[in-house]
C-alpha cells in the first residue's frame, strides 16, 4: 500500500509535458481537446440540467452506439460524416423512443428511460462484436474514450488548410456552433426551459426547440465520446453548470463560468493523469467532482458553510 499513489514528482508532472516544442504541440492538443469537450458539454449541459433532462444526456450517449456501428457497416469506412449522421440519428431515435414510451405506455418515466437506452446500447455492442476485427472500433474505447489519442489522429483538411487532428477540429467546430446558437437563440432557449406555457403564448415552437436542443446534444456527444467515452461525457454535461450554480444564480453567469471551469478540468485532469499515470478523461471527472465538492461546501449561493454562517448571524 506504500506506493498506491506514486510520489508526486512536480518537475515530471508539471514541467516535462512542456519541455520541448514537440511536447507542447502534442500535449497542447490533448489539453485543448479536453477544454473543448468540457466547454461545449458544459454550455449545452446548463440548459439540459435546468430542463431536468440530465439523464436524457446519459440515454443519448448510449443510444448513439448502434448508429455508429450501422453507419460503419453500410459505408465500410470510419469517414466522419456518415458516422456523425448515423450517431445523431440513433441518438435522436433513442430520445424519441423514450418520450414515446413515457407518454404512450403506463411505464414510469425513469423506467422507460432505463429500458430504452440499455436496449440501444446492447444492440450496438452486439453489432460491433459481430463486425469483429475489421471494424477497428474498440468497444472499450467507446466506453471510456481515450483523449490521449487525439494528437495521433489524421489532420482534418479544409481545402489546403490543415485544421488539426480530426477529433480536435471537430470538437472545436461543434463548440463554435453551440456558442453561436446560444448567442442567437438565448432568449428562446431560456424561456422554453423556464416556462412552457409562456412559450406557447409567445408563439414559440416549443417542440422544434426541444428537438433542436436534443440534436445539438447528440452532436456534442458524438463529437466528444471518442475522447471521454459515453459514460464520462455525462459528467461533463452536468458538472460545470451545477458547480457554477453555487456561485451564480443567473443563467448568463452560469454559462460564462463554463469557460474557467473547462480550463480547470482540462489542465487539472491532464496533470492528475500524468501524476497517477491513468486515464485523462477519468481524471478530468475526478477534478470536476473535487471542484463541485468545494463549490457545494463554500459556494456563496446556498453552499453548506455560508448557509450555516448565515443562520448563525441571523439568529
Amino acid at each position: 500500500m506504500d506506493h498506491f499513489f506514486p510520489p508526486l514528482d512536480l518537475l515530471d508532472t508539471f514541467a516535462m509535458p512542456w519541455a520541448s516544442p514537440e511536447d507542447i504541440i502534442w500535449n497542447g492538443k490533448i489539453v485543448a481537446m479536453g477544454f473543448f469537450v468540457c466547454l461545449s458539454c458544459g454550455l449545452i449541459g446548463a440548459f439540459i440540467v435546468v430542463r431536468k433532462l440530465a439523464l436524457m444526456g446519459d440515454a443519448i450517449s448510449h443510444g448513439i452506439l448502434p448508429g455508429l456501428a450501422l453507419s460503419f457497416m453500410i459505408t465500410q469506412s470510419k469517414a466522419l460524416l456518415p458516422m456523425f449522421i448515423g450517431a445523431c440519428i440513433a441518438g435522436l431515435l433513442c430520445s424519441l423512443c423514450i418520450e414515446w414510451l413515457q407518454k404512450k405506455s403506463p411505464l414510469k418515466a425513469d423506467a422507460a428511460l432505463g429500458l430504452t437506452f440499455t436496449s440501444f446500447f446492447a444492440l450496438g455492442v452486439l453489432l460491433i462484436t459481430q463486425m469483429g476485427n475489421n471494424a477497428h472500433i474498440d468497444a472499450e474505447c467507446l466506453l471510456y474514450g481515450e483523449i490521449g489519442f487525439t494528437p495521433l489522429a489524421k489532420n482534418l483538411k479544409w481545402g489546403a488548410i490543415e485544421l488539426g487532428p480530426r477529433p480536435l477540429a471537430t470538437m472545436a467546430m461543434v463548440t463554435l456552433l453551440i456558442i453561436s446558437i446560444m448567442i442567437v437563440f438565448y432568449k428562446q432557449l431560456l424561456v422554453t426551459s423556464f416556462d412552457e406555457t409562456l412559450s406557447i403564448s409567445l408563439g414559440l415552437p416549443i417542440k422544434a426547440i426541444h428537438y433542436g436542443l436534443m440534436l445539438l446534444l447528440a452532436t456534442t456527444i458524438v463529437a466528444a465520446f471518442e475522447s471521454v467515452g459515453v459514460i464520462l461525457v455525462i459528467a461533463m454535461l452536468i458538472f460545470p453548470s451545477t458547480t457554477a450554480s453555487f456561485f451564480f444564480s443567473r443563467m448568463p453567469a452560469i454559462l460564462f463560468s463554463t469557460i474557467p471551469l473547462a480550463f480547470i478540468y482540462s489542465f487539472g485532469g491532464f496533470f492528475l493523469a500524468r501524476w497517477l499515470d491513468c486515464s485523462i478523461a477519468a481524471s478530468m471527472v475526478v477534478i470536476a467532482m473535487f471542484c463541485f465538492g468545494l463549490a457545494w461546501l463554500f459556494g456563496p449561493v446556498d453552499g453548506v458553510i455560508p448557509k450555516l454562517l448565515y443562520r448563525k448571524v441571523s439568529v
Binding site: 435546468v50 431560456l190 424561456v191 423556464f194 444564480s249 443563467m251 453567469a253
Partner: peptide, 12 residues
C-alpha cells in the same frame, strides 16, 4: 431556476 426577478418579467 437561475433567473432573476427582472429576467422573468423581461420574458413577458
Amino acid at each position: 431556476f437561475p433567473v432573476s426577478v427582472l429576467d422573468v418579467v423581461l420574458m413577458g
